[in-house]
Design a protein around this nucleic acid. Structure first.
Length: 419
RNA sequence: GUGAGCGUAGCUCAGUUGGUUAGAGCACCAGGUUGUGGCCCUGGGGGUCGUGGGUUCAAUCCCCAUCGCUCACCCCA
């Protein structure tokens, strides 16, 4: 048997109502904040992600699905969306028509990682990008929007964490500071953290090893070494979050894994999922547009993992969707009426009613069971003496009451049913 | 890439200290009402016990390999 590829999942009909509910919620809130949807191709030239995300990152270094097409161009299934959105922004000069462009997306992403709870190789993200302003109000807006979406989905167990990475210069200075601090303690660090010391020293803060945490606890903090502008912006974001009632905590160890972030970064964690607690994350990326060939343009954004959010919602039973119901199920008494029933169903469907009937020549009882399973609001019996007199028997499935209606005014059934 | 756990019906799982036709609940189908659902009752279909090899008179059970799934590390949404 051929199965779905490792790390990929079918979203089955029984899953769809929950996905639809999430998607509608997301669209509603994005549009309230005046973000417009953008859709970009599933794959891009590999160079886009290599340059945008950073050659040294894990995503680019070992997690991308990269392949060559017949003209020998290296292509990559998108592992994240920001680089693609920025590419489209630059390519179509979206900034020429409006100086601030607010975009949102929902799309599958691909990363070749080992699957685990809340992590897949094909997964889905929604997110937003605001390109063209350095206002901290937009950073606060990103946090507020994502928080509101999660809240609207009924989630409770949330932690909003914010940090500022400062400008690249302040960050480099700080890295030196940290390096000096850790230099003589290096040998007592875990193996992973010793590796991080060389590759990405800031990530040592993320270590789950207790002994590492003890060492790093007394390390200098990035927030204490910010440049004046980053510091002022950070204060503004905090202020704005307080005003909009978003609870948050400052997490000086919050470092994002993509190279393009500057200044404000944030993450929203859930205590209701497995080890992968981040439901969404984002921040400011003032240098990326330039890196990708555009004019220097400040921007900020975030991305959220849909599977992870739905997992948290399930574990918290944070929302429920009502069972899908069909308006009317046609029960035929006698198989010779099949073709007539099919025609009748067609008429009802034209009236925008959802209608179905039995194609398996099953007994009336079996047809009723089917109607019940489909949550049918009404059942229409076709056949027997009534049918000969031009009448049909209409049954309300919740009250159980039946009434006879005339075959000739079947088109007005919709009004009768109050549907 | 590393580590641990688990693979028995469509689903959730029992089971045999190795021994005849491998079980339950749910789901599915049929009947109980020769024209009427949700409850109930009766019956039925469905499994190469993940795959390959080994040990044995005998393997779903023990051993080895392999594939897959799950969780965690790493990393990230």
């Amino acid at each position: 048997m051929i199965k779905a590829v490792t790390g990929t999942k079918d979203i089955l009909p029984s899953d769809i109502p929950r996905w639809n509910y999430l998607e509608k919620t997301v669209e509603r809130i994005f549009s309230a904040f005046n973000y417009k949807e953008i859709r970009t191709p599933i794959f891009e030239e590999t160079a886009l992600f290599a340059r945008g995300i950073g050659e040294e990152t894990d995503i680019v270094g070992k997690e991308m699905y990269t392949f060559k097409d017949r003209s020998d161009t290296s292509l990559t299934l998108k592992p994240e969306m920001t680089a693609a959105v920025v590419r489209a922004y630059v390519e179509h000069s979206l900034g020429a028509q409006q100086s601030l462009v607010k975009l949102f997306y929902m799309s599958p992403m691909f990363r070749q990682e080992r699957p685990q709870a809340g992590r897949f190789r094909q997964f889905h993200q929604f997110g937003a990008e605001a390109i063209g302003s350095k206002s901290p109000l937009l950073d606060a807006e990103m946090i507020q929007m994502s928080y509101e979406i999660l809240k609207s989905l009924g989630l409770k167990n949330l932690t909003v964490k914010i940090n500022s990475l400062g400008t690249p210069e302040t960050r480099e200075n700080y890295k030196m500071l940290l390096k000096n601090f850790l230099e003589d303690k290096k040998n007592t660090l875990s193996e992973d953290s010793r590796r991080r010391f060389e590759t990405n020293i800031l990530r040592i803060f993320d270590s789950k090893v207790e002994s590492d945490q003890k060492i790093i606890k007394d390390a200098p903090k990035l927030v204490d070494h910010l440049d004046e502008e980053s510091k002022a912006d950070f204060e503004l974001v905090k202020d704005q979050l307080k005003k909009s009632g978003v609870p948050f905590e400052i997490d000086s160890s919050l470092v994002r894994g993509l190279d393009y972030y500057t200044k404000l970064t944030f993450e929203i964690d859930s205590g209701s999922v497995g080890a992968q607690t981040a439901l969404c994350g984002g921040g400011r990326y003032d240098l990326l547009i330039e890196t990708l060939g555009g004019k220097p343009t400040p921007a900020t954004g975030f991305a959220a993992g849909i599977e992870r959010i739905l997992l948290a919602c399930e574990n918290e039973k944070s929302f429920s969707v009502s069972d899908p119901a069909i308006d009317i199920y046609l029960v035929k008494i006698g198989d010779e009426l099949e073709s007539f029933v099919s025609e009748l169903a067609g008429k009802l469907r034209k009236e925008n009613l959802s209608a179905d009937f039995d194609y398996l020549q099953r007994s009336v009882k079996a047809q009723m069971r089917e109607a019940n399973k489909l949550n049918a609001k009404y059942v229409l019996f076709i056949g027997g003496d009534e049918y000969k007199q031009g009448l049909l028997n209409l049954k309300n499935m919740s009250t159980g009451k039946e009434e006879k209606i005339s075959l000739s005014n079947i088109e007005t059934l919709k009004l009768k049913l109050n549907l």
